[in-house]
């Protein structure tokens, strides 16, 4: 009799407890970071004047070098996504309990993939930058690591959720493991895998320019050098280009994903 009472009491106060916790955490974090949330309002005018005076008008620099940098950024994103797609596609079969030859191996793969995914791309780029220096390879590797984590986890989830009915039908025909995987499971999951790949390309196009800023090369590095040289107009031009690029890709991939999943 006691337990249910306690439970319902807990449920009653749950919302309030959560609200209190949020207030404490936000308050604590603000105090700890010595960040005054009201500063946004007090310093709005400096912010606006910086924005208008320095960033406007945006200047577009159509140098071969900048256009090449833009291409490099896109290429890094694509190359990382595609490479990760192939590796993660393979790893997902070892990482899902439903297809893996060993449950311990499956757990290991999931753990490593989680670490790869949960450490931000920027941090990977920074670690790589400190050990190998600046370059497009660094950008590619940083994107690859986080894409690998992201796609492996996503693929394993897709595989886990793949219709168990189809697996059952495959077993009932008397088909062996490889026949079941290639003829039943793969055709069932591939649309889902491709949809995740497109989403990953979208993510990578976005982080590719940011990774560039900490030494990954491409348009991000160009942007960073403009900012360091106080060429804010030119920097604004680059920012607009990046935004357009991201938006364009988002439109394209969203469309393709919709078509695949329908």
């Amino acid at each position: 009799m006691k337990e249910p009472k306690l439970k319902s009491l807990c449920r009653k106060f749950k919302k309030r407890i959560v609200l209190l916790a949020v207030i404490v955490i936000v308050g604590g974090a603000t105090w700890f970071a010595r960040f005054n949330p009201l500063a946004i309002f007090f310093e709005m005018d400096t912010f606006i004047s910086f924005f208008i005076k320095d960033f406007f008008p945006p200047q577009f620099v159509f140098q071969a070098e900048n256009i090449r940098a833009l291409f490099v950024t896109v290429a890094m994103a694509f190359a990382a996504s595609m490479t990760a797609f192939l590796i993660a596609g393979f790893l997902s079969f070892l990482g899902s309990d439903t297809t893996s030859p060993s449950l311990i191996l499956a757990r290991g793969i999931r753990a490593v993939a989680s670490v790869f995914r949960n450490v931000p791309t920027l941090v990977w780029a920074f670690i790589l930058f400190m050990s190998f220096g600046i370059g497009e390879t660094i950008g590619f590797l940083a994107l690859l690591i986080s894409s690998l984590g992201f796609l492996t986890r996503a693929f394993i989830e897709t595989l886990d959720a793949a219709a168990p009915e189809i697996r059952e039908a495959a077993v009932a025909t008397g088909a062996t493991y490889w026949k079941r995987v290639f003829c039943f499971i793969l055709p069932d999951i591939i649309p889902g895998y491709i949809s995740w790949l497109l989403y990953n390309v979208e993510l990578n196009i976005r982080s590719s320019s940011i990774v560039g800023m900490v030494g990954g090369g491409g348009i991000g590095l160009v942007l960073f050098s403009y900012i360091k040289m106080y060429r804010y107009g030119k920097a604004a031009g680059i920012i607009i280009q990046i935004a357009l690029l991201v938006i364009a890709f988002e439109c394209v991939t969203k469309n393709i994903r919709k078509r695949i999943l329908s």
Binding site: I166, A169, T173, A175, C183, F184, D188, P191
Partner: peptide
């Protein structure tokens, strides 16, 4: 329990895989 992304004949032929 068919593989929806495959064609009708591919699904029928699955009966031969064993």
């Amino acid at each position: 329990n068919l593989v929806n992304s495959l064609t009708v004949i591919q699904n029928v032929l699955h009966g031969r895989l064993g």
